[in-house]
Design a protein around this nucleic acid. Structure first.
Lengths: 266, 266
DNA sequence: GGTTATTTGTTCGTATGTATT
DNA sequence: AAATACATACGAACAAATAAC
């Protein structure tokens, strides 16, 4: 259990007698350089993360070891980690450890973006998960967007999306029930909306508009997306139309803001 | 969760035998309540600030006194202050003291779709306000986006944008200094980036990419955009290129997420 | 499935540095 | 120049969450 009290010179402090460390291997912090120790450590770790030496998902050494490596007190080391955590580069959990976070997934928004292609393009394993479906009466929002009369039956499908098992987004999409009968069943079976629509003979549709806002996550989103309180979600509303311009689906999804980067190219 | 620890005290510790406080006047923190001491203190102080009991500009008692008032160690008190400082509610200066900052104003914004076109147009609307400019060495981000060597001189222009007097966004844009000499002066004079660029003979440029993330607002954004703590900002990164493909400007702007709806049409 | 070990999180104590008044 | 007040750093102990046995 971490013996080696390291004696440390008594004399209260002894700011820099580089002798007692002996190693000071990769982590050598310059005491009295004008830059605080915790900032030097934070910058060093950040550089390693950005350079890829500390790959996403990698678990950092435990705090005690890191502190020893840098030759500082655990408090000082923790302050550096706290800084990186606020910057979104790492994530610490009591009892588990500290991990380098995945960089935000680039999520291109275009006329024909499909989730599976986006994620696959990022080299990750996509999975859409079916959470449930209902047939309900179109409310004012849905009716306006889908150009239906209020009260028209619409099929609502609730989904979540993951990349490599990490939840990315959750939300609902509404379809005209008459046009999309049993779409939910096929979707649940295949896990792919694109394929489910194809079975209905709908292969050509495109994004007509995308609207984005953001706000702190609500409890439901915190649960589904595994978000800490106070984190932000981007709320993306989208309208897809068929080739002839008929509204096909209108949806509203919440994205974990620190795991996704929405990308628009004209 | 929170399975009633309720043992508290635990003795074996006893640095402060509750007798010496005697008073525990306004500040009484509940030890062993499941909520950390620093958070209780932070919330208490925040409530006093938001309620107006601690008016803007008021100087807080010195840390030692505050720590005594709450019956905690100065470290614990400082952690609470640090939290408030990050949230932008207070500001501490060594040797001077800790002061309550001016409170963020709340702007009730009604229909928000008004601003969408402004934003979708790419931040070139005429209501931009010049906040300052500097010539600095390109850091890694700027250099990569503008395809310059790290350290190349770049012109940085800081702006805010308002609509009907309500702050909407703030951010910086970077230009190759060699290409855009005195751009800032012209911009400050005209208030229009498009016109300023035209005086440099740059009339044809286009948006190449727009990236969007979101996160809780930081103190600076809370200040400029008059945001309450915890509100979200959308961070929009954009790259403009000249007709021949040469990067012209790269910028990063923060939008008050609840006042703006970004609309993208393919 | 309960117990133990590991690891992060919180708190108090103390000393010293540095900027401001 | 000295006192004041925030800033940084080291040390020790315990609490709480998680993982491993």
């Amino acid at each position: 259990m971490s013996g080696a009290p390291r004696s440390l010179a008594a004399d209260g402090h002894s700011p820099m007698t580089e002798d007692d460390i002996g190693a000071a291997p990769a982590g050598s912090v310059a005491r009295g350089s004008g830059v605080t120790l915790w900032r030097q450590i934070a910058e060093k770790l950040e550089a390693e993360i950005l350079a890829g030496a500390l790959a996403p998902g990698v678990r950092l050494p435990v705090e005690a070891d890191l502190a020893e490596r840098f030759g500082v007190n655990r408090h000082t080391l923790r302050r550096a980690l706290s800084h990186l955590s606020e910057a979104g580069l790492i994530e610490a959990t009591a009892g588990r450890g500290t991990f380098v976070k995945e960089p935000p997934l680039r999520y291109p928004i275009g006329p024909r973006t499909r989730f599976s292609e986006i994620v696959a393009a990022g080299g990750r394993e996509p999975s859409g998960r079916f959470r449930g479906s209902t047939v309900e009466a179109a409310d004012a929002d849905v009716a306006r967007e889908l150009q239906l009369a209020i009260g028209t039956p619409v099929l609502r499908i609730e989904t979540t999306h993951e990349a490599d098992g990490v939840p990315i987004s959750c939300g609902s999409a509404w379809f005209p029930a008459a046009r999309c009968r049993d779409l939910d069943l096929v979707y649940e079976a295949t896990g792919s909306l694109t394929r489910a629509l194809a079975t209905l003979g709908i292969e050509d549709f495109r994004r007509r508009e995308t609207r984005i806002t953001a706000r702190p996550a609500n409890p439901r989103e915190m649960d589904i997306l595994s978000l800490a309180p106070g984190r932000a979600v981007m709320v993306l509303e989208r309208l897809d139309v068929e080739a002839n311009g008929t509204p096909l689906q209108w949806g509203r999804s919440s994205f974990a803001a620190d795991r996704v980067q929405l990308v628009f190219k004209p």
